[in-house]
Design a protein around this nucleic acid. Sequence first.
DNA 1: CGAAAACATTGAACAAGTTCAATAAATAGC
DNA 2: GCTATTTATTGAACTTGTTCAATGTTTTCG
Lengths: 193, 193
Amino acid sequence: MTALLQQNIASHISLSEDETEAFCNLFQQQVIKKKSFLLREGEVCRFEGFVTRGLFRVYHIDQNGFEQILYFAIENWWVTDIDSFTNEKPSQLYIEALEDSTVLLISKKNKEFAYANLPKIEKLFRVMTQKTHVALQRRMIDNLSKTADQRYLDFREKYPNIYSRLTNLQIAAYLGISHEFLSKIRKKLAENK
Amino acid sequence: MTALLQQNIASHISLSEDETEAFCNLFQQQVIKKKSFLLREGEVCRFEGFVTRGLFRVYHIDQNGFEQILYFAIENWWVTDIDSFTNEKPSQLYIEALEDSTVLLISKKNKEFAYANLPKIEKLFRVMTQKTHVALQRRMIDNLSKTADQRYLDFREKYPNIYSRLTNLQIAAYLGISHEFLSKIRKKLAENK
DNA sequence: CGAAAACATTGAACAAGTTCAATAAATAGC
DNA sequence: GCTATTTATTGAACTTGTTCAATGTTTTCG
């Protein structure tokens, strides 16, 4: 059940078998149907999740009712609202399953237990947060400097296995453009081939 | 010399006096003149810095020669290229002093010493990275959803003490717009008052 | 399978933001 | 205090992206 999680951890830091097992035992599996929500705006996020099957989108709805997608999470990705989870405050985000999915969830209590009893876990989450942060910095720069065409091509190239499972609506909401404009970009690209 | 640093640390986690002192001793002070660089593209970032005086900008130059400012750092802020520092790879960023400045720098070796010998330091950097990450997520969403006018107003309101020390060129590069357009926004806002 | 819903495409009119060039204002450094 | 340099403003033409509305296509699910 936690094979993928164990592998994921090993890709960040080295843990003994005992430590790995102890940590993985702190997770609970949850199966969630397509179009259901792991989290809605206003709720406090009570988990940090590791996706073992399926696809989630993490998004925000702005004052004009538009959705901005912060990120997608497929198998082998982590998903949470770190601000809400850490500070136990109401979330501004929605986390929705876009496919029938399975996640391994760890509660705040269990995560704190891990921090207290498994010293390397602190390092694990520091390293993971750093990596996520670097990726977001990269995306920030790209969004500031690149045109929508280029961002679309970059996304398709960088995450082909996420791309292929998404609708254009989702991709547009991630790129920060209207889906009509995305459609026009796709047409233009198709013509120039 | 490290009073501000000590105070900054205390705002994230609690450390004993001994721990605080041991950690702060791992930093070296560096004074740096306006328009000088702490880091240039292509160099490996050998430090993590804490600003005690002055103002820095951290930016990237894209393939068209345009500058995107990732963030500013004034007194009481940290500054580094975390990707380059952590992975000892060439940086894609520039870090430039926009005023005569002073930073406290910690080397990778000393930081690793801290991780190994002062267990709470791992937590300190996990917590700080998390906070920075949350702020960047917020900025990402704002950049996707808000118009340049609004982003300008938000920036002015959120960081008045940084704003007042910047030229419009710097602010435009941070907001991701041309400085001419920023000038027009400012004009429009001034008229509607 | 068939109907309803969700998704994708297209065009026309519009809004947001850029580019270039010219000029004015402010600042830095000697 | 003067001059060179950097910064700020403005206008006109242009590009990028949005909005709205209409139509076609694909998926979903009872």
